[in-house]
Structures are given as structure tokens and as C-alpha cells.
Lab assay of single mutants.
Amino acid sequence: HMTFVALYDYVASGETDLSFKKGERLQIVNNTEGDWWLAHSLTTGRTGYISSNYVAPSD
């Protein structure tokens, strides 16, 4: 899985979204569905959809 880092804080707007904080590391589970990616937070252990605009590759 690809690992990304959050560029900004994000508060989930629905049950399927994932809230995260700036600097949080996220593993991308599925990024084939446009701008919203299914991600797993390595910080909180939660999984949900994130906006690809809010993250950048961590490598």
C-alpha cells in the first residue's frame, strides 16, 4: 500500500469519511475511484474515505 501524509486537518462530513489531522500518516487502500480515496490511518487505526487533495506522498 502507498503511504501518504495529511497536509491539512480534515473533519469527516459523513459516516464513510475519515477524519484526520495534519501530519497524520495514511495508507491508501483504494485510489481508483476518482478524487475520494479509501484510506487507513496509521495513527488512529480507522478506515474511511479521504479527499486526495488533502494528502501528499510521504516518500
Results as ranks from 00 to 15, higher is better:
residue 46 R to G: 06
residue 46 R to N: 09
residue 45 G to Q: 04
residue 35 D to T: 12
residue 15 E to T: 12
residue 46 R to S: 07
residue 40 H to W: 07
residue 6 A to Y: 02
residue 5 V to G: 00
residue 22 K to V: 06
residue 5 V to D: 03
residue 21 K to T: 09
residue 50 I to C: 02
residue 15 E to I: 09
residue 3 T to N: 07
residue 19 S to V: 04
residue 19 S to Q: 05
residue 37 W to Y: 05
residue 9 D to W: 06
residue 2 M to Y: 10
residue 18 L to C: 03
residue 44 T to I: 05
residue 25 R to E: 12
residue 18 L to A: 04
residue 3 T to G: 05
residue 15 E to M: 10
residue 18 L to M: 11
residue 58 S to H: 12
residue 11 V to I: 12
residue 6 A to W: 01
residue 23 G to Y: 03
residue 25 R to Y: 15
residue 3 T to M: 13
residue 24 E to T: 01
residue 39 A to L: 03
residue 36 W to S: 09
residue 35 D to N: 11
residue 4 F to Q: 01
residue 1 H to L: 13
residue 45 G to W: 02
residue 51 S to G: 07
residue 45 G to N: 07
residue 13 S to Y: 09
residue 19 S to M: 05
residue 38 L to Y: 09
residue 26 L to V: 05
residue 6 A to L: 03
residue 21 K to F: 08
residue 27 Q to N: 07
residue 19 S to D: 07
residue 30 N to G: 15
residue 59 D to W: 13
residue 41 S to G: 03
residue 3 T to K: 04
residue 30 N to L: 09
residue 4 F to V: 12
residue 8 Y to Q: 09
residue 24 E to Y: 03
residue 28 I to G: 03
residue 16 T to F: 15
residue 38 L to M: 07
residue 48 G to N: 00
residue 54 Y to A: 15
residue 48 G to Q: 03
residue 10 Y to A: 04
residue 27 Q to T: 11
residue 17 D to Y: 15
residue 37 W to F: 06
residue 9 D to Y: 02
residue 53 N to Y: 14
residue 49 Y to K: 05
residue 55 V to N: 02
residue 52 S to E: 05
residue 52 S to W: 07
residue 15 E to C: 11
residue 45 G to D: 05
residue 16 T to N: 14
residue 20 F to Q: 00
residue 14 G to V: 13
residue 30 N to H: 11
residue 8 Y to N: 06
residue 30 N to F: 10
residue 4 F to I: 04
residue 38 L to K: 03
residue 53 N to S: 14
residue 19 S to F: 04
residue 2 M to I: 11
residue 4 F to R: 01
residue 6 A to F: 01
residue 2 M to N: 10
residue 2 M to F: 09
residue 55 V to P: 03
residue 42 L to S: 05
residue 19 S to P: 04
residue 58 S to F: 15
residue 11 V to G: 04
residue 3 T to Q: 10
residue 33 E to F: 10
residue 17 D to A: 09
residue 20 F to T: 01
residue 30 N to Q: 10
residue 48 G to V: 01
residue 9 D to F: 04
residue 1 H to N: 13
residue 34 G to F: 07
residue 50 I to R: 00
residue 5 V to W: 04
residue 47 T to R: 07
residue 4 F to E: 00
residue 10 Y to D: 00
residue 26 L to C: 03
residue 32 T to P: 08
residue 22 K to E: 06
residue 36 W to R: 15
residue 17 D to H: 14
residue 52 S to V: 09
residue 47 T to K: 07
residue 31 N to W: 14
residue 23 G to I: 03
residue 54 Y to D: 08
residue 58 S to W: 15
residue 48 G to L: 02
residue 20 F to I: 06
residue 30 N to T: 10
residue 16 T to V: 09
residue 29 V to M: 12
residue 20 F to C: 04
residue 11 V to C: 12
residue 25 R to T: 14
residue 55 V to F: 11
residue 56 A to S: 10
residue 48 G to C: 04
residue 24 E to D: 13
residue 57 P to R: 08
residue 43 T to H: 09
residue 45 G to T: 02
residue 51 S to K: 15
residue 28 I to P: 11
residue 28 I to E: 00
residue 1 H to W: 13
residue 47 T to H: 07
residue 7 L to F: 03
residue 57 P to Y: 10
residue 54 Y to H: 11
residue 30 N to R: 08
residue 16 T to A: 12
residue 12 A to S: 09
residue 54 Y to K: 06
residue 40 H to V: 15
residue 13 S to W: 08
residue 59 D to S: 12
residue 53 N to R: 14
residue 29 V to Y: 10
residue 54 Y to C: 15
residue 29 V to K: 07
residue 42 L to A: 05
residue 45 G to K: 05
residue 29 V to R: 05
residue 14 G to P: 02
residue 26 L to S: 00
residue 59 D to R: 07
residue 6 A to E: 00
residue 12 A to V: 04
residue 55 V to C: 05
residue 31 N to L: 11
residue 57 P to C: 08
residue 34 G to D: 08
residue 17 D to C: 14
residue 34 G to S: 09
residue 34 G to H: 08
residue 25 R to M: 15
residue 22 K to W: 04
residue 17 D to V: 08
residue 3 T to C: 11
residue 27 Q to K: 09
residue 56 A to R: 10
residue 51 S to M: 15
residue 11 V to Q: 11
residue 8 Y to K: 08
residue 49 Y to V: 04
residue 46 R to E: 09
residue 53 N to G: 10
residue 25 R to W: 13
residue 24 E to R: 00
residue 33 E to I: 11
residue 45 G to S: 03
residue 32 T to L: 11
residue 23 G to S: 02
residue 37 W to N: 02
residue 13 S to A: 11
residue 48 G to K: 01
residue 46 R to Q: 12
residue 42 L to P: 07
residue 39 A to I: 05
residue 43 T to Y: 06
residue 5 V to F: 06
residue 33 E to H: 12
residue 42 L to T: 06
residue 38 L to A: 01
residue 7 L to D: 02
residue 3 T to V: 15
residue 58 S to T: 13
residue 42 L to I: 09
residue 51 S to C: 15
residue 15 E to S: 12
residue 41 S to P: 00
residue 28 I to Q: 15
residue 54 Y to E: 03
residue 42 L to R: 02
residue 41 S to H: 05
residue 29 V to G: 04
residue 51 S to N: 15
residue 13 S to N: 11
residue 20 F to S: 01
residue 41 S to T: 03
residue 29 V to P: 04
residue 10 Y to C: 10
residue 34 G to K: 11
residue 47 T to P: 02
residue 11 V to M: 09
residue 4 F to L: 06
residue 30 N to P: 06
residue 26 L to T: 01
residue 30 N to W: 09
residue 26 L to Y: 02
residue 33 E to S: 12
residue 45 G to I: 02
residue 42 L to D: 05
residue 28 I to D: 01
residue 8 Y to H: 08
residue 28 I to K: 06
residue 24 E to P: 00
residue 35 D to L: 09
residue 26 L to N: 00
residue 25 R to L: 15
residue 2 M to E: 10
residue 21 K to R: 10
residue 1 H to I: 13
residue 56 A to P: 05
residue 50 I to Q: 00
residue 48 G to D: 01
residue 40 H to E: 08
residue 33 E to V: 11
residue 15 E to Q: 10
residue 33 E to Y: 11
residue 45 G to R: 04
residue 25 R to A: 09
residue 41 S to Q: 04
residue 37 W to G: 00
residue 45 G to C: 06
residue 37 W to D: 00
residue 58 S to I: 15
residue 1 H to E: 11
residue 17 D to R: 12
residue 24 E to C: 04
residue 29 V to I: 15
residue 11 V to F: 11
residue 57 P to S: 09
residue 27 Q to P: 01
residue 49 Y to T: 04
residue 24 E to A: 03
residue 31 N to V: 12
residue 7 L to W: 04
residue 4 F to C: 07
residue 18 L to T: 03
residue 12 A to D: 01
residue 56 A to C: 11
residue 4 F to S: 01
residue 17 D to W: 14
residue 40 H to C: 12
residue 44 T to F: 04
residue 24 E to H: 03
residue 23 G to N: 04
residue 39 A to M: 13
residue 57 P to K: 10
residue 58 S to Q: 12
residue 13 S to F: 11
residue 42 L to W: 05
residue 43 T to Q: 08
